[in-house]
């Protein structure tokens, strides 16, 4: 039985990448969900471009404070040891390589790790926000996205056709079908969703995949 990963399972798989002590920046959407699944025993500190380090979970309207938001405009909980700072400082942390991991959504990732996630071609206007700063500055970039577009077009491509966010910056891609590492030799298929063969994944991927010796079903 082929079983794609749902949003929560993808978030859970992403969270397994966080190491004890990591400072992590989460993009909007599935990346933010990853904060719900920090592996037992690991202490992870969350950073947001809005100017806060060490915040807690997302709060609803009733509990939220307009003076404590993440970069997606959601209210977040204060935690002991939290700090706040200006935008210039928030991005000095990013550009200065102080962020261990950034988790981002994407439209396309190329086989050499180029990232396209800020603008759809032809729209003429885009929101870059902090994406290019994160792509350039975070020590490790994990992309989480659907494996193909709504029309079934591959998002893992040989060369990005959408406007680029950063060059050769993506380290790992988690999709609903697979976990793929970007290595100096190109993309390597490491894990598959239940029921999918390496050939199934390659058939839905424009980028050329090598298959890891120990390729296996995704482990959570």
């Amino acid at each position: 039985m082929k079983q794609p990963m749902d949003r929560d399972v993808m978030a859970m798989r992403v969270a397994r990448e966080f190491q004890d002590g990591d400072v992590v920046n989460l993009g909007i959407g599935i990346p933010t969900l990853a904060s719900n699944y920090i592996p037992e025993g690991r202490r992870v500190t969350f950073h947001s471009e809005s100017g806060v380090l060490g915040y807690g979970g997302v709060l609803d309207d009733g509990e939220g404070d307009i003076d404590l938001i993440n970069a997606g405009g959601q209210f977040v909980a204060p935690l002991p040891g939290m700090s706040v700072f200006s935008s210039a400082d928030a991005f000095a942390m990013i550009r200065g390589r102080h962020i261990a991991v950034a988790v981002l959504g994407a439209f396309q990732v190329s086989e050499r790790g180029d990232l396209a996630n800020w603008m759809l071609p032809g729209r003429g206007i885009g929101n870059v926000g902090g994406a290019m700063d994160l792509a350039a500055g975070a020590r490790r970039i994990i992309v989480v996205m659907e494996h193909v577009t709504k029309d079934g077009q591959p998002r893992l491509v040989r060369r990005c056709t959408y406007p680029l966010t950063g060059l050769r910056c993506v380290d790992l891609v988690v999709t609903d079908l697979a976990v793929i590492a970007v290595t100096p030799q190109g993309m390597e298929l490491r894990e598959t969703a239940p029921g999918y063969s390496a050939a199934d994944i390659q058939a839905m991927t424009e980028a050329r995949l090598t298959v890891a010796k120990d390729v296996r079903e995704v482990e959570l």
Partner: peptide, 23 residues
């Protein structure tokens, strides 16, 4: 880019004409 925007403003206030960034 948001960080570049923040830094361009910071530089403006600090008398730095321009700067190089990887972003």
């Amino acid at each position: 880019p948001q960080g570049t925007l923040a830094e361009r403003i910071r530089a403006g206030g600090a008398g730095i004409a321009a700067f190089y960034t990887p972003t």
